[in-house]
Structure formats: structure tokens, C-alpha cells
Computed example of a mutant assay.
Amino acid sequence: MMHQHAHTEAAALSTAAPALAPADLQALACALYGIEGGATALGGERDQNCLIDGGDGMRYVLKVSNPAEAPSVVDFQIAALEHVARVAPALPIPRVVRTVGGRTRERVCLDDGSVCIVRLLTYLDGVQIKETARTSGQRRAMGGLLARLNLALRDFTHPGAHHDLLWNVSGAHRLAAQLEDLVDPARQRLAQRFMTRFERDVLPRLPQLRAQVIHNDYHLYNVLVAPQEQERITGIIDFGDMLHAPLVGEVGTAAAFHMAGSEDPFAAAAQFLAAYHAVLPLTDAELEIVTDLMATRHLITALISEWRAARYPHNRAYIMRHNPAAWEALAMMADLSRQDARDRLLSEIRPRRTP
């Protein structure tokens, strides 16, 4: 059983995403937005997403929300995008497209009687960073841009921002029961080690740290670059995991995804962190635990993906796409002391003294 106050998000993760046929999605785009065009499926964890090709050169993402998703959460995500568009219009984020009636979203009733919320966003062109050769310049561009996004969101508030989300590294302890579902004893011991470290060294410090609305899913699938200029970012996508949480959780989460695909995993993450810190400096208290939260993101990735893949085998490839790297990172970090891992991550901010 999950911790009781995680039930809302667990419901969204435990309820299958809508599965409308392409023809139905096209009909929705036409009826609600006056856009006639083909529909192509896009990946998603909780929602059904599709690309709508308007035929006039414009492309859009039609999102049909999970029936278990609270309307206040959808409204929060819409309001956050509109806030960033106002205060930082140069940031490459999707824009909210209004219906023919001028609304930011509509409720639709599916054939099974469930009610979903439909919204439309502009489609951003670019190549997922996951598909490119990683470079120092690209990592630094990612770090600086995330800091700019966080600055744009710093003063944004919304009632829906305080919703529950299992993908929140600050609440990793709520997944403790999922340790029992791990079949491999070695992996169970590894996960337990990092859960204990989180509960002992991180959780007591979090209430004293600054918090705000964060993207919470800033990884290599959700950042786009220009095909011919792969250090120039053209898009930040997938704002579906946003919430109000400690800011350092944003940085630890994002840095975690820079450990894979590099000869020295800490060197790559250190470049990302240094670029972020140059734009939006972290406090000493935040720097003390950012490495722990990087490990915590890998921990919750492993636990949530194992749990969900067993329940939704048809969506296994999407659910498990970060799972191998998460286990690999945890195994590597288990060989280091907290201090050594922290020193390596902060090497560009606090160069280590030579004896």
C-alpha cells in the first residue's frame, strides 16, 4: 500500500490513459479548435497525447487528460505556461491554444462515461537531446535555461500547485513500501540503502529550504535542440509533472539525467549544475544535499517504473525508458561516500583543494 496522502497521484498513475482512436482525436481538434488535420500518437505516462498537423504549417499537441487527473491540476499547468509566456516570452515553451469559444480547456465525456479534460498546445520543433551527441556546451545551455525557467516561475502561485505527486523527490519516503516489490534481493538492498540515506540526511532539512513551482521533469527527452545547432535549445516540453516543491529538488532531478552517457558521470552533471548555479545560485544548505537528491531521483525512477511496468505491460517501453540508467547510477553512487559524491558534483563550483 502507498502512503495514504499519495493516493491522488497514485490514482492517476493507476488509471489507464485514455485511448481514443485517431479519428476521434481529429474530430475533437476540429470541433473544439476548428483545426482539421491528421493525428499522430505521441508518448505519455498518464495522459493521451497526439500531434495534430494543421496542414497550414502549424502543428499542435492535443492532450486528453487522465480521467483521474484533478481539473485544478490541469488548470495549474495551463496557468503556469501562460505566466511564463508573459514574464519571460523568450523562453522556448509551448503556448496554450484557446478553443473556438475562447477557453483554455474543455471537458469531454468518453464512451465509457469517464470525463476527461482536453487542451491544445503549440508543437515545438527540434530534436530531443536524447538523440544527440552530448557536449559540455549543451549541458551548460541546459543548466542555464532551467535556471531562467525557475526564475520565471519564482513568483507564480496557483491553488493546484500543491497537488500530490509521486514524482517529487522531496516525498521519496512515501515509496518505501515499493521496496518490498523488488524481486532482486541485491537491488532491494541497494534501494533500501538510498531510501535510508534520504530519510536520515535529506528529509529533515527540506522544510527549511526555499520552495516554488518547478518543472520537475527536465530531462533529455523533454529538452529540444536545433538539428544543425545542437547546443541551441529550441524547446522545453512536458510540463505535466510541475508542482510546488523545494527548488533544490528541481536541480537534483535534472542533474541526475546527466550521469549517463559520459566517461565521468559526475563531470557531466557538474557542468550542468555550475551553469545553473551561475544564473540562479543555490544556497550552502541546498548545495549540501543536491547530490543526495540526484540519487533520490534515480531511486524513485527505479521504484515507480518497476511498479507501473508490472501493471501496464503494453506501455512498458515508455515506462521503463529511464530504469536501466537509474539502477546503474545507484550502483555507482553506492561505492562513494556522501562527501566524495558531493565534492565531485560541486567540483566546478567549489574546486577541491589539493593536499
Rank of each mutant, 00 (worst) to 15 (best):
E199S: 13
N323V: 02
R342C: 13
P94I: 13
A21Q: 14
V100F: 00
V225F: 08
E250T: 06
R193D: 04
Q188M: 10
E263Y: 04
E45K: 04
A68C: 11
E263L: 10
R154P: 00
W327I: 04
E328R: 14
R316C: 10
Y33C: 03
V290S: 12
G143S: 09
P281I: 02
L165A: 11
A152V: 10
R105A: 15
A331L: 07
V115A: 11
S347E: 15
D241W: 07
Y312D: 09
D125G: 11
F194A: 05
A285V: 12
L25F: 07
F272L: 07
P265L: 12
M195G: 01
A6D: 03
A186N: 09
A39M: 11
A79I: 01
L153N: 03
S136L: 06
T135V: 03
V127Y: 03
P159C: 05
V251S: 09
D24W: 04
T40P: 00
D53C: 03
A302C: 01
V61A: 04
A79D: 11
I129C: 14
D125Y: 12
R140P: 00
A329C: 14
A21R: 13
H244I: 12
L146I: 02
A152T: 07
E36W: 11
V251W: 03
S305P: 01
R139E: 11
T234F: 03
H244N: 14
R95Q: 11
F272V: 05
E306P: 00
L121I: 06
G235M: 07
G102P: 02
I289L: 02
R321G: 02
E231K: 01
A11P: 00
L42M: 13
A27H: 14
R95I: 01
A12L: 02
H219A: 04
A226N: 08
A39K: 02
T157E: 14
G34C: 10
R232K: 15
A10G: 11
A269F: 07
I349V: 14
V115G: 01
E131G: 01
E229R: 15
H258Q: 10
Y221F: 14
L165G: 00
A29F: 09
H298K: 04
R119S: 09
R140I: 02
R352Q: 15
L51Y: 11
L145M: 14
A16C: 07
L243Q: 12
V74A: 13
A274I: 01
Q4L: 08
A275M: 07
H7Q: 14
M142I: 01
L32G: 10
L28Y: 08
A274C: 06
P89Q: 08
I236P: 02
P71S: 10
L62T: 04
L145N: 07
P227M: 12
K130E: 15
A88W: 03
R344L: 14
G37V: 13
A334P: 02
T157G: 14
L203P: 00
R316E: 15
L224P: 02
S337P: 07
L182G: 00
P351L: 10
T104Q: 10
D155K: 05
M58G: 13
Q271F: 03
F156E: 08
D238I: 09
L206Q: 04
V248G: 05
E250F: 08
A31V: 12
L20D: 09
I237Q: 05
T296F: 01
A270L: 09
L175D: 06
Q128N: 09
D75M: 03
P324V: 06
